[in-house]
């Protein structure tokens, strides 16, 4: 079994706060992964709001949030445990984030020996 981080991205901060229905769909999706014994780590939600996000760069430069530079910003991640990346992608495809224009990056986790 391998582990893959599913990294969630959104385009619009306004979409960050989900409606009750979106929350329900999201929980149902995650519960489905648990119910397949495929959730390795519940991960976390990362707040994209001003005051909660800063980027630190060389030369003692600190900017507010990642918003100004990249169009999409990370809002959270979970880690799944599957046989291969295709299975992880199949799980990601079921996520309701695509309906609000978000995206998911699937990345294999390097297992430390």
């Amino acid at each position: 079994m391998k582990e893959f981080a599913l990294i969630f991205r959104l385009n619009d901060v306004a979409d960050f706060k989900p409606s009750p229905e979106q929350m329900q769909e999201r929980m149902n999706w995650l519960a489905g992964i648990v119910a397949q014994n495929k959730l390795a780590d519940k991960g976390n939600t990362l707040l994209p709001t001003p005051g909660s996000a800063r980027t630190v760069k060389p030369g003692n430069v600190v900017t507010d949030g990642p918003f100004t530079e990249i169009k999409e910003f990370i809002v959270g991640f979970v880690v799944v445990r599957t046989a291969d990346i295709d299975e992880a992608v199949a799980l990601a495809k079921e996520n309701p984030i695509f309906r609000i224009g978000g995206s998911i990056e699937v990345r294999e986790v390097l297992k430390q020996a």
């Binding site: 929980m27 648990v34 119910a35 397949q36 519940k42 445990r81």
Partner: peptide, 25 residues
């Protein structure tokens, strides 16, 4: 149920209750 199923997941343990809850899901 979804909320508690997710809360009860630590990535490793699959007790009798975890499995039965998963089936019920």
């Amino acid at each position: 149920g979804n909320y508690h199923l997710i809360s009860g997941c630590n990535g490793e343990e699959a007790s009798k209750y975890h499995l039965e809850a998963a089936i019920a899901y």
